[in-house]
């Protein structure tokens, strides 16, 4: 079906909204009534029709507004997109993967015509029709990574693989849950995950790294991660923390249902063919608490998860100060009834 794109903002007046369809397809991340860090990787295979997992790179009603927001953030801070000199080829791998996937999965929105190295890319929603030479960056208005990720929702990290480790050596990061590409670029897997509490002791990162080093081409994997965000602000960057941090103090029992959002990251991992690097898209989805509770199972479950979450996690995820208010709000929607297994609505 054709997607109706919203005209909405992720800053200032925050007009972002989810349609009833977007609420139903929201990638709710909790498969049970409690949460602890886990590797939780599964094959990134096509999911149920209409779900956020149906296609390789999900395009939804927020596409055009998210791309506008990305352009705004980049104009303000060009360091959000960086690529170390040896990562050019991985950038082209990324461009190819996204263009071929989108053209196949959304033929009404995107077209890719290849005649040898001469490629024509049509992005109908954004009104783009560009012809360029593959592997020649002088034929594109930006480097290959920046070019394609200015047209694709979600953040992107590209990980170089060497010395039995993964190194975050390139990325496009404008919708992040409070981490800085500019600071973390060049770091190893354990280094960039260093600030995460508890998970190191649980061995989560050791297992994840071991698994990822053996990731094969054509066999991408996915997992969900989550946090809590006040207002539908995609750019919760450390760079701008002094600007969005004060918004956390604006929650009241009356507005918490509208202002407090659950933020879910659909993370996928792809082995890239030429560079042997790994593409790590981190696609963010936002939903208001008052929209979550329209799915009774989700309302009950989110209440239980947030109520029982260890203090370290609530602190790291940045909502410890507002947790009592959030839990109090959600408790109205938890009648104590059992919930069914799995993430999807009943």
């Amino acid at each position: 079906m054709t997607i109706q794109f919203n005209d909405e903002t992720f800053t200032g007046d925050y007009t972002f909204r989810n349609s009833p369809r977007a609420i139903r397809r929201f990638p709710f991340p909790f498969h049970e009534d409690s949460y602890m860090y886990a590797v939780n990787l599964e094959p990134h295979l096509p999911g149920p029709k209409g779900s956020a997992f149906e296609h390789r790179f999900d395009v939804d009603e927020h596409y055009l507004s998210e791309m506008k927001d990305r352009a705004r953030v980049l104009a303000d801070d060009p360091l959000r997109c960086q690529s170390l000199p040896h990562m050019d080829l991985a950038g082209w791998d990324t461009l190819e993967l996204i263009m071929t996937s989108k053209a196949e999965d959304y033929p009404d929105l995107f077209e890719l015509h290849r005649d040898g190295d001469r490629w024509r890319w049509i992005n109908r929603p954004m009104g783009i029709d560009d012809t360029f030479t593959f592997l020649d960056k002088t034929t594109l208005p930006y480097g290959p990574l920046e070019y394609i990720t200015r047209q694709t929702q979600g953040d992107y990290a590209i990980l170089d693989q060497r010395e039995n480790d993964l190194w975050m050596d390139a990325g496009m990061v404008t919708t992040q849950a409070d981490w800085s590409l500019d600071f973390d670029i060049g770091m190893s897997f354990m280094q960039w995950h260093a600030p995460v509490p508890l998970a190191h002791q649980l061995g989560v990162f050791d297992r994840a790294l071991k698994f990822l080093l053996n990731l094969q081409q054509g066999a991408p994997v996915r997992r969900l991660n989550w946090t809590m965000t006040v207002n539908p602000n995609l750019d919760t960057s450390p760079e701008n923390y002094h600007k969005w941090g004060p918004e956390k103090t604006t929650l009241t029992p009356e507005n918490v249902g509208q202002k407090q959002h659950l933020r879910v990251e659909l993370q996928t991992l792809w082995r890239l063919p030429r560079s042997n690097a790994m593409l790590f898209p981190i696609r963010g989805y936002l939903i208001r608490l008052e929209d979550i509770v329209t799915v009774p199972k989700w309302g009950r479950r989110l209440h239980r998860v947030l109520r029982d979450l260890p203090v370290e996690l609530a602190t790291y995820k940045g909502f410890i100060r507002n947790r009592p208010m959030i839990v109090e709000y959600l408790s109205q929607f938890d009648d104590g009834a059992p919930t069914s297994p799995g993430c999807f609505p009943d």
Binding site: F183, I185, G186, Q191, A194, P238, Y241, H242, G245, T249
Partner: peptide, 22 residues
């Protein structure tokens, strides 16, 4: 003062301490 450290910069990360309570 955070303990998070970048070898590329040779520096630790400093983050606004009063962002949530200006």
């Amino acid at each position: 003062v955070r303990d998070h450290y970048s070898r590329r910069f040779g520096a630790y990360q400093g983050v606004c301490v009063d962002a949530e309570d200006p």
